[in-house]
Amino acid sequence: MMSKNRSTISLISTEPNPKGIRIERMDTLPVSKGTTLLKRGFAHMQKHGVIMDVTSVEQAQIAEDAGAVAVMVLDKLPYDVRKAGGVARTASIKVIEEIRDHITIPIMAKCRIGHTEEARVLEAVGVDMIDESEVLTPADEERHIWKWDFTVPFVNGAKNLGEALRRVEEGAAMIRTKGEPGTGNVAEAIKHIRILNNEVRRVKAVYQDGDMQELIKIARELKVSYVYVLETARLGRLPVVNFAAGGITTPADAAMLMSLGCDGVFVGSGIFKSQDPMERARAIVIATTYWDDPKMVMEAQKMIDEGKSMLGMDIKTLELRMQERGSEA
């Protein structure tokens, strides 16, 4: 209608009329809910922020006071999921409800990969974003949830461009690196964002050379629709907000991932498996905002005690590599 009415964020979509969109009336005013703009827009509001894993109201309140942009509710922190073994499922609904009613910032919760009905339960309880997560035991090895059918937005993990764009094609409104959850080791998150950045650089260069045939070839290699590769190439970045996750433990870890172009960070076990969660939570928030100011990151790093960091584990000796879950689909 208006010539200047161009959206400021990418709204590319697989579904012409996603089932998740609801047209309603507020009194007499027509309103639309669950649109791509609202889902991705929500993710944009999290940018430059820290989303913290919590398992109780107490932890959620510590996170909120420290400056978390949102909390992720789990039954067990990823480190404990690893130790416990067995099947990991979504958190207890009572715990989610209790946290929901005690904090003002958004709450997120994880569902199992491909478990549409577990996600429906989370949508019904009112979580603000669902993480279809490899930390939990996958329910479907063949396919992820078709997220266009939901009104609430989703975030998915990825360790390369192909995975990221396949998840966006399924309707994810936000991407995060997978890293290797629960290890206290940031190496895998760094590896994944570097792979993604390199792949984005490649498609951007091909696009700038005007070689559309090569872009189609890349789309086939990545097993994703051409339009998503084209959009990424044009933007020179993922079409949705991209956070870092998996193994972030210190303020410097957060600053490192921000310096690699992440829009924000998730911290899983790193805070509440440490012995100084309150100080550490705030220190990571500060380092995420001021990642490009070494003096501020140093001040943040000073707020924590390395003796109180979670010990962490070497990735080479792990029996369970959560990052491989759902990668082929």
């Binding site: 208006m2 309603e24 507020m26 005013l29 027509p30 309103v31 639309s32 809910k33 669950g34 649109t35 703009l37 609202l38 827009g41 929500f42 509001m45 929901r100 958004p106 949508e123 009112g126 979580v127 603000d128 974003m129 009104t151 609430v152 937005p153």
Partner: peptide, 28 residues
């Protein structure tokens, strides 16, 4: 207006910027 599921878009009348409706994007 509630949680993210109730975030909405609606056309608004904002007189000071003209008659044409303005798309209001309401997120939580």
């Amino acid at each position: 207006f509630g949680r993210q599921i109730d975030s909405f878009e609606a056309d608004l009348k904002i007189k000071v910027i003209g008659e044409q409706p303005f798309k209001g994007v309401f997120i939580r």
